[in-house]
Simulated assay, not measured.
Amino acid sequence: MDKQERAIALKRHQQKRNRSQISLALLLVLTFILAYQIGQFYIGLGIGVILSIVVTGWLHYKESQFARSMAPEANVKRLISRQYMWTFLFMMLPSLILFVMVLLGRPLLGLFFIVAVAAQYMVQWYYEQQIRLLDPEQPRRADVREQSI
């Protein structure tokens, strides 16, 4: 498979899961809004947060497995797994920091939010560069995003 075919395949895979990812993001946002309005964090809200994080993590894992299946080398597959793992971590971390910041009323946590978002971009860039060195045919996330189907 060449780079464009891989990007199209990844884009189709992502489109299949878009509706569920949007639903989970809305569940997470709704949970955060309810916790902020109530002023406390109840067990039901905690279950909503944990459920949305776990299912989002599972969808992220399935996408990484699909991306790994297109890579020919074991080293590239390992880097793709790490890339998706770190991306998921740095995707969830800012949202949790923002939630705690709003719930506790601690604006200084905003600095950690900014650092977490910056770290997400740096990690993404680093792994894309490493993967590109080992497998130039593996599409970057920007390549997948630019594909029209």
Rank of each mutant, 00 (worst) to 15 (best):
H13S: 05
K3Y: 06
Q129E: 10
R6K: 13
M92C: 15
V76I: 10
S20A: 12
S95Y: 10
V144E: 03
A35I: 05
A67W: 01
V54T: 06
S23R: 10
I97V: 13
I8A: 12
L134S: 06
I114C: 11
T31W: 05
I47H: 10
D135V: 07
Y126T: 07
M101C: 12
I131Q: 08
K3G: 05
I33E: 04
L98P: 01
Y126R: 15
S23N: 02
S148G: 05
A116H: 01
F41M: 12
L10W: 03
G44I: 07
V102D: 04
S64V: 10
L134W: 03
L59V: 01
W125N: 09
Q120V: 01
T31F: 01
Q21D: 02
H13T: 08
L45W: 13
D2W: 07
R78M: 10
K16L: 14
P136H: 08
V115M: 06
R82C: 00
S52T: 05
H13R: 12
A118W: 09
G57N: 10
I8Y: 09
W125I: 08
Q129V: 06
V76D: 12
P94G: 08
E128P: 00
L109K: 01
F66N: 03
V76K: 11
E63M: 15
V123G: 00
I149M: 11
Q120G: 07
I38K: 06
F112P: 00
F88P: 00
Y61F: 13
I53V: 14
E63A: 15
L59D: 04
K16D: 02
L89A: 07
E146G: 01
Q14N: 10
Y127I: 01
A142K: 13
L34T: 12
E137G: 07
L45Q: 14
R68L: 03
L79R: 15
L30D: 11
W58K: 08
F113Y: 15
N75M: 03
R68N: 08
L109H: 08
P139I: 03
Q124L: 13
A25Y: 01
L51G: 07
H13I: 00
S64T: 08
Q147C: 06
Q124P: 00
L79T: 14
K62Y: 05
F99Q: 09
A74R: 14
G46W: 09
R68F: 02
R19T: 07
V115H: 07
Q130H: 02
I43E: 02
L133N: 11
V115Q: 07
L24Q: 14
I43K: 06
L59H: 14
R6L: 06
Y61H: 14
W86C: 03
S81Q: 09
R78I: 13
G110H: 13
E73A: 08
F41L: 14
A116L: 08
F41W: 12
W86F: 15
I114A: 14
F41C: 06
L109V: 12
L133E: 15
I33T: 11
K16P: 00
R19P: 00
I114W: 09
V123L: 11
T31Y: 03
